[in-house]
Design a protein around this nucleic acid. Sequence first.
DNA 1: GCGTCGACTGTGACCGGTCCCAGTTGGAAC
DNA 2: GTTCCAACTGGGACCGGTCACAGTCGACGC
Lengths: 338, 338
Amino acid sequence: MAENAASHRRPTIRDVAAAAGVSRGTVSRVINGGHWVSPDAREAVDDAIRRTGYTTNHHARSLATGRSNSIAFLLTESQHLLFSDPTFALLLRGATQALADRDMTLVLLVADTEVAQANIEHYVRAGHVDGVLLISSHESNTLLTSLVSAGVPTVCSGIPLGEHAYVPTVSVLEEDSARVMTRHLLDRGYERIAIITGPNDTPGGRYRLEGFREEMGDRFDPDLVEQDTYDRDAGAAAMTRLLERAPDIDAVFAASDVMAVGAVAAARRLGRRVPEDIAVAGFDDSGLAATHDPPLTTMRQPWAEISAKMVEMLLDVINGVPRQPVVLPTTLVIRESA
Amino acid sequence: MAENAASHRRPTIRDVAAAAGVSRGTVSRVINGGHWVSPDAREAVDDAIRRTGYTTNHHARSLATGRSNSIAFLLTESQHLLFSDPTFALLLRGATQALADRDMTLVLLVADTEVAQANIEHYVRAGHVDGVLLISSHESNTLLTSLVSAGVPTVCSGIPLGEHAYVPTVSVLEEDSARVMTRHLLDRGYERIAIITGPNDTPGGRYRLEGFREEMGDRFDPDLVEQDTYDRDAGAAAMTRLLERAPDIDAVFAASDVMAVGAVAAARRLGRRVPEDIAVAGFDDSGLAATHDPPLTTMRQPWAEISAKMVEMLLDVINGVPRQPVVLPTTLVIRESA
DNA sequence: GCGTCGACTGTGACCGGTCCCAGTTGGAAC
DNA sequence: GTTCCAACTGGGACCGGTCACAGTCGACGC
């Protein structure tokens, strides 16, 4: 009856109710799971929805429920890492996939400048998103403090160093992983093993070094440690410094694949063959490890699981279910570089 | 007076109005530009906003205006390209930056399966986003058809082949670019030049080949053409086939940097040095070109401009301002590989 | 036969903005 | 002294859902 009334307006829940001969409340119940609705009514509503081509208006729903049905993928590293480090893309991909099933969406936020960070803080605290996947590794993270104090559901990647032990996190066994790789290098017979690790205010930088030191035991030589940012150029520069300082090193453990790639390039430039003259191992098993020349021996981080877990935990936290930090294992992937 | 009434509720426009001693209408006007508001009122409202800590509720605004203040970055390629091809990341980065100023947000959508595509279609047509940045190169794009017919403001990257001439696009001079690179190779004295190009249903695949053929003129040998998908392995496989078929080739023009990287690896595996034995040129100047060993000679696509332009155009289209397709120039970047 | 309970349904209030229209005011024009 | 207009203001209606609550109805127990 009232079905053909409004011509081009998008059908609302009222139109559906009219078409089905029930009330708005019943339609709403059907849409949200259909509990306490008689089979007849449910069928009538389903049919009416089909006939009218009804789609729920998410803005209206968000206004009424206070939920946005979206979560933020928040990058705190400077933006160039998004494309120079395949790691972020892997996490992004995993998060997208994990969210695709549930009908939620991912909003991408990049806090690469102070202004951007302030805007994002404002945006998130204004309730635009239901929660935040915080992708960061650095300790000095004012954003995290701010989010936590504002009560925004947040899940972190890596272990947030500092005061935030109570934030749910997904991380890997940094120390153990480093020990496994170090053991591998030792077992292969390398003797003068150097390490190129990340900044000390990142879990990767700190704990991988620690694991390395422990496993090396007496063989550990503080002179064979280089610490720098997680990018290619830094890896290359570190390798150059190492080879100048200690030309006799026969293996290098880089704390990320990207750094390892830089290290290999630098070694070659100085006339060393990899792995014949010097072995180079990486960390992450990001996309480039397998296709690099030579293919990189590396520690595989379970990216898909990490991001899936993060999403799952975040949804729990959003729904008020408390979650404990999760620590995942890594696996040694032996290829040709070490 | 009513200022301290509600305790922990987020302040609304009503609270601000009460605090400022004006009506909701006036507050709304101040928030939206402040036209037709007396200086006194404006000041009172600004002050009240500060005192109450008011933030506009975007859900409510969206419901009332029908605008979501967000746009979709829609990837139609299968998801692995997001991280294997740095190109996407470059566009994503540019779009994020361009949107950061305007207070709009980017929603990331990946249509990598049929189901995902159906969901996304539904989502976008439901008015969740104000417009779509469609990142795709393939001709057979049902999504584009669907978006256009649903009246969703859309801007495409690349030239959408097929029926969609009326969709605003941002692209580069494919043919000319290919000619410039070909000319460069010819000028360097290479004589047996092969091309590894992309699928024929992509503008890059088709028009770069065309430009190459034209510039080669009489020297063009259809036997030295390989066509495959834009990824590393495809590039490597194509190079392998080429070297088997025509061991005398002295240069290869790959239609993307990623393919070029694969081609270099394959050439090396077959004992050829690059560029001494065979030159390899790429296309895109994506991040990996400069850091590759050897650094790739390539055609630089102006990624930042492309994405900025796309955003700018999309916002115009959303506001009802018609836009014409834009074609940007590329530049030859000479490094060591060719 | 009455009370009770569980399943189901309808309705008004509400979420927090925007929009538009109907005023009010003060000053300039005639 | 009207008239008119521009500048400004207030408030009701509305956007399209959800939610709490009141109410209906049939079955069942005693």
